[in-house]
């Protein structure tokens, strides 16, 4: 198993390298530069800025410089937020995004699994239909509709919770963004669990348990082990996306996470910030894909990674 993890980690490095290379040249191909303002800077000023940030060197040399800095963990300075390095920006934003995304992830798994299991046990009964209608709503209503509605209802009309802000991660500030972020995921998980659970309940080993008259909760736990597989493989990329921040949620609730950096970085041609976020997301995706494969082996005894 350890060998397998080690091998996977080393094979992830080339992927990361390709991702970095692709995005480095893609963002450079985009028209415009980081110092383009509404009123153009004087040519001399522009020249100096480009020299300080080494943007006047040939592209290949810049690429090499970036790679060698990246290898030592240096993401470089941000062009747009002038006083900060990209590493500082990410270090400040990531805890916020991970808190919100992690809680949403746990909430989505907990509620989604419960709802999906209930629906599967009561297939084609009212409980099943209401779960499915709820799930379809969850998938179809965009987050940027749900979030303002939550703000209006719970923040302004009922005045139970703050409308937005981070407030050092106070629990009251977390509730609304976490719910808004988790809702579509709850829906997806519930649908997947329902589908795979119905299949699992028809399998021989579960039929045996049923014939022995075991309580439903015990049957559910046994069936879940197999039924979790599709959810686990879906949750890999989804978890990476949740933990690296949602630009919609962060914008609507005014949270200082990393989700916005992407959009801001790309639109302002903040090359280093964009590259930093790309690397961050790619690392999350690769790590979570690895976790998924390990979980697969734990859940499904037919899958083995001995070699």
């Amino acid at each position: 198993m350890l060998m397998y993890i080690f091998r996977r980690l080393t094979s992830a490095l080339p992927t990361l390298f390709v991702v970095v290379t692709l995005s480095f040249f893609l963002i450079r191909l985009a028209p415009g530069g980081p110092f383009d303002l509404e009123q153009p800077l004087e040519a001399k000023v522009m020249e100096n800025l480009n020299r300080i940030y080494k943007l006047d060197r040939p592209l290949i040399e810049q690429y090499w410089l970036y790679l060698s800095h990246l290898a030592t963990g240096d993401f470089g300075p941000s062009f747009y937020a002038r006083d900060f390095t990209v590493a500082e920006l990410l270090a400040r934003g990531l805890p916020v995004s991970i808190t919100i995304g992690g809680l949403a992830l746990l909430l989505a798994l907990a509620i989604g699994i419960v709802l999906g299991t209930i629906a599967a046990f009561r297939q084609n009964q009212p409980a099943d239909y209401s779960v499915m209608v709820f799930a379809t709503f969850g998938i179809t209503i965009p987050t940027f509709v749900v979030a303002p509605v939550l703000q209006i209802v719970f923040g302004l009309m009922l005045a139970w919770l703050p409308v937005g802000g981070w407030n050092n991660g106070h629990i009251r500030n977390l509730i609304l963004p976490v719910i808004a972020l988790a809702l579509p995921q709850v829906a997806v998980v519930a649908r997947m669990i329902r589908a795979s659970m119905i299949e699992a309940l028809r399998s021989n080993h579960i039929r045996t348990l049923r014939s022995q008259g075991l309580p439903r909760s015990t049957i559910a736990i046994h069936a879940l082990r197999g039924a979790m597989l599709p959810v686990v493989s879906y949750m890999g990329p989804a978890a990476a996306a949740l933990l690296t921040g949602s630009v919609v949620i962060e914008t609507i609730f005014g949270l200082p996470g990393v989700g916005r950096y992407f959009v801001e970085g790309a639109l302002n041609r903040d090359y280093t910030l964009v590259m930093g976020t790309v690397v961050m997301v790619a690392v999350f995706v690769l790590v979570f894909n690895l976790i998924v494969d390990i979980l697969y082996a734990l859940l499904d005894p037919r899958v083995r990674y001995d070699t």
Binding site: T15, L16, V18, V19, L22, S23, L26, I27, A30, P31, G32, P237, T244, V247, F262, V263, A266, L267, V274, T277, V278, V281, A282, V285, L286
Partner: peptide, 16 residues
Amino acid sequence: ILYALPFIFFVIMLVV
């Protein structure tokens, strides 16, 4: 590899 590229990044590059 294309999966590992952040999707939003791609889309925003397209807009650009």
